[in-house]
C-alpha cells in the first residue's frame, strides 16, 4: 500500500519538475523514452488506430508541459502524467466514436487455470493436483539477451489487452497495484487477477524458451 503523500517520491518529483522548468532537455527526453511505450499501450485501449494512439501520447506530453504549473504533488508526477493520458485518450476515443470502456474488453481473460492442467496429476494419480513432473529449472544466471527480450515481447503480444496493459504498468514500469487499479478504474482484485494471468503466460513462454534451447547454443 502506498502511504498518503508518498514521502520518498516527493523530493524526486520536485527535482524532476524543477529540471523540466529549467529547460533540461535531457530530463525531458529520458521521460519521453522511459514512459511513452507504456503510454502507447494504455492509449491503444481507447482509440481505434495506432496513429491515433501515437497522437494521444504526443498530445499528452504537450499537455504535461503546458500544465506543469498545475502539478501540485498530491499524486506522484508519474500518476499525474498517466491521468492526463487517460483523459486525452478517452476524449479522442469519443471523438473517433470508439468508446470502448476498458471493462468491456474483458471476456475470457479472467477464467480458467493459468498452468496447463495436464501438468498436474488427475484424480487417479498418487497425488491428485500434484505436478506430474516438476518444472525444469532454468539456467542459474539468466542472461538478458536480445533473444530473451524478443521472447518477452512475443509473449506480451499474445496477452489479452487488459492483461497486457496491467503487466506493462506493473512489471515493465514498476507502478504500484493501487496506482494501476486507479488508472484503469478496476478493483484491486481484478487488477491482481489480470497481473497473475499475464505473468503466468510470460513465464510459460520463457519456460519453452529456456527448456527448448540446447545448452550452450548461440544467443545464450
Amino acid at each position: 500500500m502506498a502511504s498518503p503523500g508518498r514521502p520518498d517520491g516527493e523530493p524526486r518529483d520536485r527535482a524532476l519538475v524543477a529540471s523540466l522548468r529549467a529547460g533540461d532537455e535531457q530530463a525531458f527526453a529520458d521521460l519521453v523514452d522511459g514512459w511513452s511505450g507504456s503510454m502507447l499501450r494504455l492509449a491503444r485501449h481507447h482509440v481505434a488506430t495506432e496513429a491515433a494512439a501515437e497522437e494521444v501520447v504526443q498530445d499528452t506530453w504537450l499537455a504535461v508541459l503546458t500544465g506543469l504549473d498545475r502539478f501540485r504533488g498530491q499524486a506522484s508526477f508519474r500518476t499525474w502524467v498517466y491521468r492526463i493520458l487517460v483523459n486525452q485518450a478517452k476524449t479522442r476515443g469519443v471523438r473517433d466514436r470508439r468508446t470502448v470502456p476498458f471493462a468491456s474488453l474483458a471476456g475470457g481473460d479472467e477464467d480458467g487455470p493459468t498452468v496447463d492442467p495436464s501438468r498436474f496429476q488427475g484424480p487417479e494419480g498418487p497425488h491428485p493436483g500434484g505436478w506430474r513432473q516438476f518444472p525444469q529449472e532454468w539456467p542459474e544466471d539468466v542472461v538478458l539477451t536480445q533473444e530473451v527480450h524478443e521472447v518477452v515481447h512475443r509473449a506480451l503480444d499474445t496477452l489479452p489487452p487488459r492483461q497486457r496493459v496491467v503487466v506493462a504498468l506493473r512489471d515493465l514500469e514498476g507502478f504500484e497495484a493501487d496506482e494501476v487499479s486507479d488508472l484503469l478504474e478496476i478493483s484491486a482484485g481484478n487488477q491482481r487477477v489480470l497481473l497473475h494471468r499475464g505473468r503466468s503466460v510470460v513465464r510459460a513462454h520463457l519456460e519453452s524458451y529456456y527448456t527448448a534451447a540446447p545448452v550452450g547454443s548461440a544467443g545464450r
Binding site: E25, G34, S36, Q58, V142, S200, V202
Partner: peptide, 28 residues
Amino acid sequence: QIRATIDVLGAVPPESLHGTARQRLLDA
C-alpha cells in the same frame, strides 16, 4: 520462475515513440 519472470519483464527496454514524433516533442 515467476520471480525470474518479473525480473526479466523489469529489464526489458521500453519501446518509445518513433524518431520523428520524438524529435517533434523535443522541439516542442
